[in-house]
């Protein structure tokens, strides 16, 4: 099994940390992982994307041409990465931020209204965990238990009290993701 994922959106949406938690969950499952950010001088508000690869075998190239799964959290990201999803692959888009849905019909398309859910619960900080939950529902790369274990490793001790809240968000994300086609 090798899953090559691109996560893309605006800086500040938690794109990089979501990728990191996913990679950590992969390590917990005993898999090989790589996390390759597109880095730049922008600190906030710019575009951000990260390629995460989780594999049973050694990860060859951390840079890939085509993706099994693209998670797009804004319109420019969709336009940029939709053509590079492998046939039979998956796009997950955020319902509020992406206003023109993906057009391809040779891939699986899912929508997650994470922004709305985060607004409804009044906790915008778990936005990326809702999306991660959606991903794990449709692409079961890691179990929620392993993600939680990953969070324990990824977060400094002082933030561990936030883990249950994040776990709840992941489980909620699994519920709210919808298949579009």
């Amino acid at each position: 099994m090798t899953e090559e994922i691109i996560i893309s959106g605006f800086g500040g949406q938690g794109v990089l940390s979501m990728g990191k938690i996913l990679a950590y969950a992969g390590i917990m499952e005993g898999k090989q992982v790589s996390w390759m950010p597109a880095y730049g001088p922008e600190q906030r508000g710019g575009t951000a994307n990260v390629t995460v690869i989780v594999s049973d075998d050694v990860v060859s190239s951390p840079i890939v041409s085509y993706y099994d799964t693209a998670i797009v959290l804004n319109q420019p990201s969709l336009e940029k990465f939709e053509p590079f999803v492998k046939p039979g692959g998956t796009i997950i888009y955020e319902g509020h931020s992406v206003f023109q849905a993906p057009k391809r019909d040779d891939i699986n398309i899912y929508r997650i209204d994470a922004m709305e859910e985060a607004a409804r619960t009044g906790n915008s900080k778990v936005f990326n965990m809702l999306v991660l939950g959606g991903l794990l529902k449709v692409r079961p790369i890691a179990t929620v238990d392993d993600v939680v274990k990953g969070l324990h490793k990824a977060l400094p001790e002082r933030h561990h009290k936030l883990i249950p809240m994040n776990e709840d968000a992941i489980r909620r994300g699994m519920e709210i993701i919808q298949k579009v086609k």
């Binding site: 990679a23 996390w35 390759m36 950010p37 951390p62």
Partner: peptide
Amino acid sequence: DGVIGQMMEK
């Protein structure tokens, strides 16, 4: 190089 420096792996 910048890729190896910036990427994360286990």
